[in-house]
Amino acid sequence: MAMSGGNDDGEPMMEMNTTPLIDVMLVLLIMFIITIPIQTHAVKVDLPQDSNQPLTDVDPVKNKVTIDAQGNIGWNGSPVNEVVLAQYLDQTLQLPTEPELHFQPDRDARYETVDQVLAIIKRANITKLGFIGNEQYRNDF
């Protein structure tokens, strides 16, 4: 911004100095930006409802989790989703002795699905986990 210094003839300067006005405007703008509340976005999630009835598909000796080529998860031969699988795993930990958990993914199952199921098993703190069906990969390496 160029500022005029006036003339040497002794007349008053006729232009208004806008520099202090711009400084005040910038300070007010920064104050408004700081005082604006942070906007939070809520995501609605449908959580499963806890049922008091016990799950009857849990074997006290051994249970088998399978994943087929289409990515469907099975628990002892019956199809389940991730929420029901987590409930079954939690129920196995409530038994007096933790049953064995056999994990058998299909060779054509997507790695992403297998990884998600293994993460669910890990979050459930299962300690007796065994991978079965590894002989299908014997000739691949």
Rank of each mutant, 00 (worst) to 15 (best):
T56L: 11
N63S: 02
D57G: 10
I67L: 10
Q87K: 08
D90T: 14
N72W: 09
K62H: 07
D106A: 04
W75R: 04
P79Y: 13
Q49H: 09
K62L: 14
V83M: 07
G71Q: 07
P60H: 03
L93A: 10
L85R: 09
N76H: 02
D59Q: 02
L95W: 00
L101D: 00
N76C: 03
I67S: 03
P105D: 03
V83E: 06
W75H: 01
E82H: 14
G77A: 01
T97S: 08
Q70I: 11
D68P: 13
P79M: 15
L101K: 01
A86N: 13
L85A: 13
Q104H: 06
T66V: 11
I73G: 05
P60T: 06
L93M: 10
N76Q: 08
P105M: 07
T97C: 11
I67F: 00
D90C: 11
N81P: 14
L89G: 02
K62M: 07
V80W: 01
G71E: 05
I67A: 07
D68V: 12
Q53K: 15
H102L: 15
Q87T: 15
P79G: 14
L55V: 05
N72S: 11
G71F: 02
I73R: 06
A69L: 10
Q94M: 12
D106P: 06
E100A: 06
Y88W: 07
Q91S: 11
L55P: 00
T56C: 08
P105Y: 14
H102Q: 12
G74L: 14
D57K: 06
P54Y: 00
Q104V: 07
Q70Y: 15
I67W: 02
E98L: 05
Q91V: 08
W75N: 02
Q49S: 05
Q91R: 11
Q104D: 09
T92K: 00
N52V: 14
E98M: 10
D57M: 12
S78G: 15
G77N: 06
V65L: 04
T92C: 05
E98D: 03
N63T: 03
D59E: 04
N81T: 09
P96D: 08
V65K: 01
P99I: 02
S78Y: 04
Q104M: 12
L93G: 04
V65Q: 02
V84M: 12
P60V: 12
V58D: 00
L93P: 04
D106H: 09
N76K: 03
Q87C: 10
G77S: 05
W75L: 01
T66K: 15
Q53H: 14
Q104Y: 01
P79T: 12
E98P: 00
A86D: 08
S51Y: 10
L101Y: 05
L101W: 05
E82Y: 08
P96Y: 02
Q91L: 06
N76S: 03
K64I: 05
